[in-house]
Amino acid sequence: MRVQGGAASVAACVLIGGAAGCAGVQSALDPGGDEAATVARLFWTMTAGALVIWAGVVALGWYYGRPHEEAPSPRRDRWLILGSGVVFPVTVLTALLAYGLWMLPPLVSRAPEGSLTVEVVGEQWWWRVRYLDATGAPLVELANEIRLPVGEPVQFRLSSDNVIHSFWIPSLGGKMDMIPGRTTYLTLHPTRVGTFAGACAEYCGTAHGYMRFMVDVMDPAAFDGWLAGQRQVAVEPQTPETQRGRDVLRRAGCGACHTVRGTSADGLIGPDLTHVGSRMSLGAAGLSTDAATLERWVSAPERLKPGVHMPAFQMMGSDDIRALAAYLERLE
């Protein structure tokens, strides 16, 4: 059951968040999962309390701070210092702390044995995504895209072998860092079918702002179909142009960094391209996967994503690049 936080929170969103309210593919206040819903509820509760307390303190400060004659009153001193300054905050804070501690263990616990396990490795500056089988062996690898079945817990296993990144899908739940030398875990329970966006939340170098990814929460049946499709090798090119594109891929040495399963390309440095044409975005930078964008990307990736480690292939000539882009676009 998804929790939106009630009409009051929607009104509050419109008030402070502009016409669009709190909605959004990347909004923590538009939950699509249990964890995000829990935190959104916590946020609205605390915000309401905080605003009341803020108004009270400021009103007291304003009222007593305006010019007036001397008015000593030990009784009021006691009320203000002991009552408002000590007893009230201790009471509120104790209650809040207990509430926060009470909700903490479920949020940090692991998914039950046998849950879907997805390994995500932070790279500079993209996401290597591996779906694992029950033994922990990889079923399939892809990049910058995660699809999940709705209504089932998913266990993320997070790591990095370069710098620190942080894995964050605001609509589904809180973030978790990816730290070299450590493995961290994040459990999420998506509750709503839909497309969400994620981002790296820990500053990780030049293209940190371009390290995003897409999340698609699907019906379990659709998910199973998609996963089976991802496990297939790459489709054979059918047109002369796409066939030329495949040859370019081989000739230009793309396989040194990229894998296209079913071809000789088996590089491990860059993203797996076996089904790149079916992805929701390109380059972890929210780019479209159409042929035109792929063409620009291959010619001069730095223009689309500053700092990217992939070199520019402008020197291959525009015909080759166009063919390559056409081939990649059809790798669905």
């Binding site: 501690l101 940090v108 616990s109």
Partner: peptide, 10 residues
């Protein structure tokens, strides 16, 4: 309160 309410290493 913290150590007794949250006894988990996860």
């Amino acid at each position: 309160m913290a150590v007794f309410m949250v006894q988990t290493c996860q």
